[in-house]
Design a binder for these strands. Structure first.
Lengths: 190, 190
DNA sequence: CACCATACGGAACGCTGTTCCGTTTGTCCA
DNA sequence: TGGACAAACGGAACAGCGTTCCGTATGGTG
């Protein structure tokens, strides 16, 4: 097999800077949200701005790289919850809650996810690739079990959930989980 | 009574420019969304940028001025629907649909509404003043009729509805009305 | 008609993202 | 070991945005 990557042998300083940038970006995202100025990330990492763009052509690429592990974990949790939960509907609700918790703790990520800006293309693509199929399977299972109305497409549903997470985690009394719970409840057959 | 305004007699050119700015802004909002560059609005109106800031200190003030009529109409429709609808729940659903239709046809307005930027303070204040009480009354009526769970606060609910409208009206197949319908359905008692 | 407060225009500033190129540095082979 | 070359770097420079500020123009008025 081809190992982890078909690494075209990058230079040592390049690898070092990429790591430093990921750490700096993670810290900066926590401190100032995912729309923190590029210069600040560069300063934290002790590199020039050019170096950021060389490693991560768009902000979305950097965001994806920083949160890849957590997104993968979320994707992996889908089938597990489906097997563990009392019913498919419970599994769906639990999984969505997992996703919501992830989103609301990343300042500005929900906002970025719905941005139509071209530079966020790769962020969309990644979330769609990894999470929408998982959601689709949970929705299908719940529909097959007769617990929710069939016909909801996973992409729209996840966009709705993501939208509801916008503005959460501020001082205002807005509770994203409560709103998402309403949305899920709205799916149920009556 | 004090007539329509206690107008402190503004100069004729100032009144003319204010009108021109409102027209230009309305056209620019339609063409490029509510986050159209200030310079473009100024150019459309044939004035300098300073003139915009003199009449409308923040972008939110301009947005409020442009859409005031439609927001007032929406606010006025609440009590009417409550009286007309077969049930309070129907009135609530119809009114929310009115609000959603308003939002999705104003490119970028839903996004602006959830912005926490200080310059949008007056936009928040206006919507909260005019629409939240109407929504609260409809929610209370539906709860009193035993059709929805009591305890939903109108502000959170409207924020949720507004959030669901983000990204509607683009090429993507996202249907804000459908998602909002889910949210309303989630309110119903089971 | 002359005065002056009111209002205007747009240059200028600061902060963003993004590009570009002269310089530095790691790697590899003679 | 040392030199050569591709790879990578840094940050100046540019463009687009919101916002401020002040010299200039103008409408109202006695």
């Amino acid at each position: 097999m081809a190992g982890s990557q078909a690494a075209p042998k990058k230079r040592a300083d390049a690898r070092r800077n990429e790591k430093a940038l990921l750490d700096a970006a993670a810290a900066a995202f926590v401190a100032s949200g995912v729309d923190v100025p590029v210069r600040e990330i560069a300063a934290r990492a002790g590199v020039g701005v050019g170096t950021i763009y060389r490693h991560f052509p768009t902000r979305a690429d950097l965001i994806v790289a920083v949160y890849r592990h957590q997104v993968e974990a979320c994707a992996a949790a889908g089938p597990e919850l489906l097997e563990a939960g009392p019913t498919p509907y419970d599994a769906l609700a639990n999984w969505i809650n997992l996703f919501v918790d992830f989103l609301v703790t990343k300042h500005g990520l929900a906002e970025a996810m719905q941005s139509e800006d071209a530079s966020f293309q790769s962020l969309h693509a990644y979330f769609i690739d990894r999470l929408v199929p998982v959601c689709a399977r949970l929705l299908a299972a719940a529909a097959d079990a007769g617990q929710i109305e069939p016909g909801m497409d996973a992409l729209s549903f996840m966009r709705g959930v993501g939208n509801l997470c916008i503005g959460a985690g501020k001082e205002g009394a807005y509770d994203a989980r409560r709103m998402v719970a309403l949305l899920i409840a709205g799916l149920r057959v009556r």
